[in-house]
Design a protein around this nucleic acid. Structure first.
Lengths: 123, 123
DNA sequence: CCACTTGTTATACGGATTATATAACAAGTG
DNA sequence: CACTTGTTATATAATCCGTATAACAAGTGG
């Protein structure tokens, strides 16, 4: 999978890494059980420090997206829990929707955007 | 409008302020043209520093949610631009949807959450 | 004119976070 | 035993966050 970092972004590098890997899982570019690159390899490939990658992997582990095997590395393994997922997603969705609605989007516009993204994700 | 700060949150105080004010605008608790509390009053009411409120107001101004009148204060005035709003919302929506989908939500589940939030907002 | 309020700016300080760097360790592989 | 894996420990520089004190420009109302 292609991972690219925007060093001028106000978003932390480890956060960008997390988001892109989660995006990769959602789009099934990373399959369940697949091994992510080692922290050293990914750091080398992207041009950042090993610890920054390690932090991203640690966050992904805490948030239930990967499991870590000492001998292999970080393995994609998503904790599926629809109830919790719905609560989390709703919480994260709230400020985004509020902004969009303020700026003139309708409920239908939001649904269109959701469908558009789901299509791009291939879901 | 009721504004409450979670001092234990990992979200910055000024960011929480911004989100709650935007939420207030979306739910029409703050009408267009309405004057927000002065930076000093709001800081006093919430129990934070004046500059933290000022930072929130500055961000809201830059993002096109309020205009500032020297004599009155910060006035709710949202820049409506559907095209830009759609692009911004889509960008912000992407990581949220990716997470939800990874965790087992379906496209329909997302739509349900959007409707649920819109209903709560009264849109 | 004067006291008062408005946002704004400058400066400073302590604390936390971010990213880097070097180094070492435990554990499993081949 | 050499090699890789993640992990941990320090250290450092930079940035951000929140607070604090102070002052300024500008408009309001007595």
């Amino acid at each position: 999978m292609y991972i690219e970092i925007d060093f001028n972004s106000d978003e932390a590098i480890y956060q960008q890494l997390c988001n892109q890997i989660i995006l990769g899982i959602a789009t099934e570019q990373f399959a369940d059980g697949e091994v992510l690159p080692s922290v050293r390899d990914l750091a080398e490939a992207v041009g950042i420090n090993m610890h920054t990658v390690n932090k991203a992997y640690t966050v992904l582990k805490q948030e239930g997206f990967v499991k870590v095997d000492r001998r292999k590395g970080a393995i994609v393994s998503v904790d599926v829990n629809k109830e919790r997922a719905a609560a989390m997603t709703k919480r994260d969705l709230q400020p985004v929707l509020a902004q969009g609605l303020c700026r003139g989007l309708s409920r239908a516009d939001i649904h269109t955007l959701v469908d558009s993204l789901c299509d791009e994700f291939g879901v």
